[in-house]
Design a protein around this nucleic acid. Sequence first.
DNA 1: CCGAAAATGGAATGAAAATTCCATATGGGA
DNA 2: TCCCATATGGAATTTTCATTCCATTTTCGG
Lengths: 276, 276
Amino acid sequence: MSENEGIATPPTNITQTIERLDQMQDELPKRLKQCASFTRRHLHLVAVSTVSDMAKASGVAPSVYIRFCQAIGFSGYSEMQGLFRVQYTSFRPDYEQRLAQVRPDVAQGSGQLLGEFAEAGHKSLLSLGNSVANEGLNSVASGLAQARILHLLGMRRAFAVVSNMSYLLGKMDVPALLHTDVGHLDSPPLMTPDDALFAVTFAPFSEDVIQQAREAAERGVPVYGLSDSEKCPLFEFAREELIVHEHEVAGFRALNASITLTTALSVLVGSQRRES
Amino acid sequence: MSENEGIATPPTNITQTIERLDQMQDELPKRLKQCASFTRRHLHLVAVSTVSDMAKASGVAPSVYIRFCQAIGFSGYSEMQGLFRVQYTSFRPDYEQRLAQVRPDVAQGSGQLLGEFAEAGHKSLLSLGNSVANEGLNSVASGLAQARILHLLGMRRAFAVVSNMSYLLGKMDVPALLHTDVGHLDSPPLMTPDDALFAVTFAPFSEDVIQQAREAAERGVPVYGLSDSEKCPLFEFAREELIVHEHEVAGFRALNASITLTTALSVLVGSQRRES
DNA sequence: CCGAAAATGGAATGAAAATTCCATATGGGA
DNA sequence: TCCCATATGGAATTTTCATTCCATTTTCGG
């Protein structure tokens, strides 16, 4: 028995975990600080790695990494890993119970709801780090950077995404055209094979967007896509496609992963163009 | 040479795995087909689940699930899981070395840049939870919910924010009007004191937005604001104002906190209106 | 309806991982 | 400089997991 200086209560969600990580950063001994630092920047690895993996990557011994988990407030690595795995496994009986605690759902308190969306945002950003799609980010960026004019297409929920891109690209002097009104797009001279089209659509997919993109592709315009599902029809004709997954709260999704990905993409396009 | 009914070579990537799954679907015995069917629909679970998890979820015994993995061509579950984990990690032993270098510099590698934005996103969401402004979220929501028509105003970086709100509110049958073109706004009959204006502007503040909002306020229209600074001129005449802080990467800001806050706000407005 | 071949599930085994323990190293204060 | 408290890493232990084995059941051809 002794003074457990550590906090007794384990974090119950990702948000709390990150907070505690940041907050303890300063008061930890050297090796544990290494763990905190690495983990903070590679949260998405926890769900799919073993202690020795994380320890090695942090540059410490496995036992040290476990001590780190305990310093954070968990009973050990397994408990911490469990927290990060829940987001992938919400349907399983064992996990459903935990999930129920984390998510006393629906729009009651406002702070409550905001917290839920923030948590969902964290998760979305985590799976963004995990996504296979990211590997293609560079090649999509160079594809878009070569375009004479970059056409942006997206409706409903996706419209915010492309309008944000439009703003960023404009700020970096990349010639980009945001197609706000479907219909005036298909005037033939507007898009040429020298251009590129970046189309965004989430399930259930917008017929208009698909249609416009398909016609562009048939006309020889390189089409790149962003979606939240592999079943997206854009896949049929797009050069490359990025995929993001947004977690939802009470049936609503924010745009954290999408906006973050496309912001990074826009900056990449901007910097690649500047180099040439 | 010999007659192993199973295919000798294991799939080397996810695509191959899926193909083989689909292709074998018909020629498998009942229980194994169950495994194939469930796994096909929940591929993402493999990386973070144990055999017994997958077996239970598929409705079979663990040993059966392993036999299923072998039928696909893997040596066992571990090998199959390894394939799925690699997709998530891109995990290299020499990680911590790179890490030290990468941290300070900016827009070089693409995955790195995305990681930086994800990191900034986490921070933004954290400060969102901490911010004082959020306490006012409920009262802003009820203010907006009482409006006959909810006018949305935002330009540049803020435009994506209000257009997202416009979509969400529309989806919930809240009468909202997105002002895309400044200038046609100030036709007097368009906004009345029965309405409300939600204006978004980030530093450096858009003159147009401030001006429009001020005129609306002088005409008796309740104005609510969202900004990233307390120095925002909207403060001078807005009923209430929300504040978010977005972390930046290489001079660029994503919209994680803003989008998350306004998404929550929109849902609140929608649910409050439904109650009356 | 019978028998052989295949399929299935539970128990036994072996491997790997998480966690604890302990001897050694390190750093800060007297 | 010495001493004590704390930190650290490797070895030992325990737990969990993957895999194999085998008895039982099911299926299908005759």
